[in-house]
Every structure is written in C-alpha cells, then in structure tokens.
Amino acid sequence: MAQTPTPKIRMPATAKAGEVVEVKTLISHEMESGNRKDKDGKAIPRKIINKFTAKFNGNELMTVDWFPAISANPYQSFFVRVPESGTFTFEWLDDDGAVYKAEQKVTVS
C-alpha cells in the first residue's frame, strides 16, 4: 500500500428529526484481489477491506461484507435515518486487521 487509506464521507450535517438522508462513502484502497500475478508470475497476496460498519451513537445500523469483487477505492452509498442529533461512525476493516474510521456529526434542527 502506497499510502494509508483515507475515508471520505458525504452526508448532510443538519437534518430534520426522523429525516432519511443518503450517505456516500469512499475510501482509497487498492483492494488487491489475490487473483493477480506480478511480472515474475508470482501471485500477489490478497489485501482487501473485508467489512464495513455503520453506527449511530454507538448503535450498529448495518454491516457489509466485501469480497475481492469490490472495485479498488471502494465507493458505497446507502440511506440512514436521523432520529436525533448525534454522531454517525463508519469503520472499514482491513485484511491485515487495521481499522479505518470516519465520523460525521449531524444536528437535528
């Protein structure tokens, strides 16, 4: 990996109570599938992000298992409800055990 994966989140920072908003996430990662070979014909070992988790104020909303068929620099969009002011946290778990995190505070107006 050339650089540490950096997550990016795009979602509104304010919402009405109970509003449904779309979350767009992106993280820079090679998602090395394990199927490729280097120029000497040796298999390049698999290294992907295998799990994505979304939480709101510590409660788990959803998890997604990713497999090598997920494109490099994985993009994922989905929907969440904003019941009250709070913090959404997103976590990506790497094959090597590293966890990449991102947070977004949303205020209910």
């Binding site: 449904v20 709101f56 409660n59 788990e60 909303l61 959803m62 998890t63 997604v64 298992d65 990713w66 497999f67 068929a69 997920i70 989905f78 929907f79 969440v80 409800r81």
Partner: peptide, 10 residues
C-alpha cells in the same frame, strides 16, 4: 458483497 441490515436503516 453481503449487506446485513438492521431495522434502524430506513
């Protein structure tokens, strides 16, 4: 991919 949802997701 495998998505695992909870009822908290709208």
């Amino acid at each position: 991919a495998a998505f695992h949802f909870t009822p908290l997701v709208p």
